[in-house]
């Protein structure tokens, strides 16, 4: 648990710093939730609500990355999930029927889970590199979403219960936050109460040792990609319900990149092995808060791309042992000591 806390220290510090900046610029209201119309509001609650789709995707991505994989198709799957549900709803005569909304959601989730499993089969059984296997759907997926919507942007009536998924509240807490929290807890239980988490980390940490220990890595890999697809579909539903429409082209744009970024900020290494669902969650909130922070400190919203680029760059460099060695060299006492390896260890401790 100590190592776990250490991993989370940096993300938490960054988040606290960002929140502090916002409180300084906009006052304490930034963090304190307000209650209007029996529902929680306020800047920070809104950040959490807006971040829910990203969190769902980032959680799925965390598991995939733990197996030494990556899923580039989540943005496209997001668009497909949104397209299926919205198109089904606007195609029917009564958009307010609860049964319709439930079946639309169910079908969207089943399809996205199948898509995820397909990615997993490509990786586990066909032996195709994850980045290549999921690239196919990254390219074709938005086309499929447009095929479903006929190239239009289906707009669901505001009266449809579907929009509750994005806009509603339960016990004053916005529904997207509920869903994201439930999925977080469910995945945490699924991976940490069963042996799934440990076996995932084993497969990602050392595939050959796992094989020799008798682990069925193929089935586990497919399961993980399936979960990732399901999460992406669910994220798409929330996003579409919030907007009341499904934009096949722009819905979930770059969300795969944001998700990977959140996973990396949260302390899970892209090389697989140990994963941290809580770290990913903090990473997602950091990204969400960063967007608000940019505006609150008086920069134009265009800066968020630049800010994200800087974050990716810094995180990538900090995770590189070569960079740390090069960067820390001037701080080492011994001038030009040939034994760099032991010295590096000493720094690490």
């Amino acid at each position: 648990m100590n190592a776990y806390a250490k991993r989370l220290m940096w993300p938490v510090l960054i988040l606290v710093a960002l929140i502090a900046v916002n409180i300084i610029t906009t006052g304490i209201d930034f963090i304190v939730p307000s209650v209007n119309d029996d529902r929680l509001g306020g800047a920070f609650v809104n950040i959490l609500r807006r971040s829910a789709p990203l969190l769902l995707i980032a959680l799925g991505m965390t598991l995939v990355i733990a197996t030494k994989g990556i899923d580039l198709s989540v943005g496209a799957v997001y668009a497909i999930g949104a397209a299926i549900a919205c198109q089904m709803i606007i195609d029917s005569s009564d958009q307010t029927a609860a049964g319709l909304v439930f079946s639309a959601i169910a079908i969207a989730l089943v399809v996205t889970a199948v898509i995820g499993a397909w990615n997993g089969v490509m990786v586990a059984y066909f032996g195709i590199q994850p980045i290549v296997a999921t690239l196919i759907l990254m390219i074709a997926g938005r086309g499929i979403a447009q095929l479903i919507t006929g190239g239009q942007i289906p707009k669901v009536q505001d009266a449809s219960p579907f929009t509750e998924l994005g806009r509603g509240a339960f016990l004053t807490v916005p529904i997207p936050i509920w869903i994201a929290a439930l999925v977080l807890v469910a995945l945490a239980l699924l991976t940490r109460r069963t042996a799934l988490g440990m076996l995932l980390e084993s497969v990602g940490g050392n595939p050959e040792a796992s094989r020799l220990a008798g682990i069925r890595s193929k089935g586990i890999t497919v399961l993980v990609y399936l979960v990732c697809g399901l999460c992406a579909g669910l994220a798409g539903l929330i996003g579409a319900a919030n907007l009341g429409s499904a934009d096949a082209n722009n819905g979930g744009q770059w969300i795969e990149l944001d998700a990977i970024l959140a996973v990396v900020i949260g302390g899970t290494a892209l090389l697989g092995g140990r994963f941290f669902l809580l770290g990913t969650t903090i990473g997602v909130v950091i990204i969400g808060t960063l967007e608000d922070t940019i505006i609150n400190v008086g920069l134009s919203s265009q800066w968020q791309f630049t800010a994200k680029a800087i974050v990716v760059f810094v995180v990538a460099l900090l995770q590189s042992p070569e960079f740390r060695g090069w960067f820390l060299k001037p701080f080492k006492r011994k001038p030009a000591a040939p034994a760099t390896a032991p010295a590096e260890e000493a720094v690490a401790k």
Binding site: E201, S202, N206, A209, G214, G273
Partner: peptide, 25 residues
């Protein structure tokens, strides 16, 4: 390279084969 999963703990490495034989669930 073929035996241990370095990042996992002593306990996890010990039970790996037993757990693998029981399945993840």
């Amino acid at each position: 390279t073929e035996g241990l999963v370095g990042d996992l703990t002593v306990a996890e490495n010990m039970i790996l084969a037993l757990q693998a034989s029981r399945g993840w669930a």
